[in-house]
Every structure is written in structure tokens, then in C-alpha cells.
Amino acid sequence: MAIAELEVQSRSALGKSAVKKMRTEGLVPAVLYGEEVEPTPLAVNEHTLNRFFEKYGQSMLVSLASGDNNKDEERLAVVKDVQYHPVTGRVSHLDFYSIRIGVPIEVEVPLSFEGKAEGIAKGGLLQPIRRSLEIRCLPREIPEMLKIDVSALDIGDAIHVNDLDIAGIEFVSPVNFTIVTVQAPKAEAEPEAEEVEVGEEAAEEVAEEAEE
């Protein structure tokens, strides 16, 4: 995986009032942490961050660049967590996890379902159960997404985590997790039978009235 650079700022002001002021200035509070790394408060320009996510997504290796960065020391990280405002949907906080190139890490990677399942031609419905999976691998082996071929799935078939075998990647998610399945088509209503039942009920009512 390639490394994308993201400009960040160090910040010393902490607390709710400081964070609120940052957001009014168009900055998103963030923190960098990891093994043998002291938690470091950061700030990211919201517009820059949105463009970064639009271009690279959230599974990219990130080189954190700032004016006070040591030019001889590259700060590499992955996006570990993104929090969104419940009303506006804007990014409200960001967690970066510091990494070392030669040490495996755990990350969550989105899934992409490819191909047309055989069961769809028979009226089945492709039903994704999971949209992402947690994996463990070396930082440079992190895929932007995991491609899952569903073309062989018939009605009632499913793909589980233990069906996947991708070189260099270990799955952290439980092996029995269902990823995607093809559901049988829903049974259609039988209006003719319903009309017959209604007709029979009406006939019985007429017969009862005649007997009276």
C-alpha cells in the first residue's frame, strides 16, 4: 500500500472550550497514540481531511506532516477511529495509531463484492452481512479493500471468514462470521386462492341467511 501525506498541527490547548474553539476555526481535534508512543494531541484542517478521505478512504497508511515535525523522523500511522457529529455528520474527532513498517498491525478494511451470484438469476437476493473485516498484516500489505467474488453463490449459499485465503493477511474477525449470502426470493401472495376463500365465506353466509 502506498503512503499518503496528511498535514497536521500540534496542539497544547486541551479541554471542551479549547476543542470548541478549534472547531469554529475549521479544525478537527485528533490524537496520535500507539505502542511506545506517548499520546500526542493534534489538529487537522477539516477541509483538508475531507479531501483526504474522499481521495484515499480511511484504510490508507498516513504520513503525518507538520511544521514542527523532525524531518529525519517520519511519523507513520493509520486511521484507527473516526467520530462523527450525530446531527451534522461532520467529523468531530480522529484517532491515529502510530505504526512501525516491520511490525504487523490490526486494522479494519472495507469489503467489495464482485461478480453476479448464480442465485440472482433464479430470483435470489444478494445479502451482504458485513461491510468490513478486521485483519492483521504488515503495514505495507494493508489493502485498500478486500475483494470478495460472489459469482459462485447459489440460493442459500454463503461466504464465511474461514472461506477466505489471502496471502499475507490474518483475519482477526471470528472465522464463523458470515460475510455475504444469497437469500431465497420471498414467497408471493396467492390472490386467486384468497379470492376463493372470500367467495366460500360469502357463500356460507348466504346459505346461513337462507336457512334463517
Rank of each mutant, 00 (worst) to 15 (best):
D81Q: 02
P191D: 01
R136K: 14
E204K: 14
V19P: 02
A184E: 03
P174T: 04
I105C: 00
Q58M: 06
R140H: 15
I129E: 03
S66W: 10
E141A: 14
Q58P: 03
R51K: 13
E134V: 08
E38K: 15
P128N: 09
D68Y: 06
V31D: 02
A210W: 08
E144V: 10
E200Y: 11
V44T: 05
P174D: 10
D95I: 08
V107S: 11
V206P: 00
K16L: 03
A203P: 06
A167K: 15
H47M: 07
I120R: 11
Q127P: 05
I105T: 00
V109N: 12
M1V: 09
I3Y: 09
V206D: 08
Q83W: 05
Y56N: 07
R23Y: 01
D95T: 11
E38I: 08
Q83I: 05
A207V: 07
E190F: 05
I101A: 02
R100L: 07
D72A: 15
N50A: 13
I159A: 06
A193T: 03
P185C: 04
V196L: 15
P110A: 07
E54Y: 06
A193I: 04
E74C: 05
R130G: 01
E114F: 08
E201H: 09
K122L: 08
A207Y: 10
V19T: 13
M60L: 06
H85I: 02
E201A: 11
Q9H: 12
L146A: 14
A207G: 08
V62R: 05
P128G: 07
A2Q: 14
P39L: 03
E197F: 11
A158D: 04
K71H: 10
I159W: 04
A167S: 15
A117S: 03
A184G: 01
V28F: 01
D68Q: 15
K20G: 07
N69L: 11
S17W: 06
A193G: 15
E190T: 03
G168T: 03
E200N: 11
G57W: 00
R75V: 14
V8I: 13
E35V: 11
K71R: 14
S12W: 07
T178G: 00
Y56D: 04
R140Y: 11
L27A: 01
P41M: 01
K71V: 08
I129N: 05
E141K: 15
C137N: 07
L125I: 14
E144R: 12
L138A: 09
A158E: 10
S151K: 15
P110L: 09
E195S: 14
E195W: 14
A207Q: 10
D157V: 04
P174Q: 10
E211F: 14
S66K: 14
D163T: 07
S17N: 14
R90W: 02
G115N: 12
E54S: 13
V91A: 04
G115Y: 10
A167W: 06
S98N: 03
D149A: 12
G168K: 07
V172Q: 13
E141C: 10
D68C: 11
I169E: 12
I105A: 00
R90V: 04
L6S: 13
A30H: 01
K186G: 07
A117E: 06
G123Y: 03
A121D: 05
K80N: 07
E211Y: 13
G124H: 12
D149S: 12
E106P: 12
N70V: 02
A30E: 01
Y56T: 06
S173G: 10
N69T: 01
N50Y: 09
L61R: 11
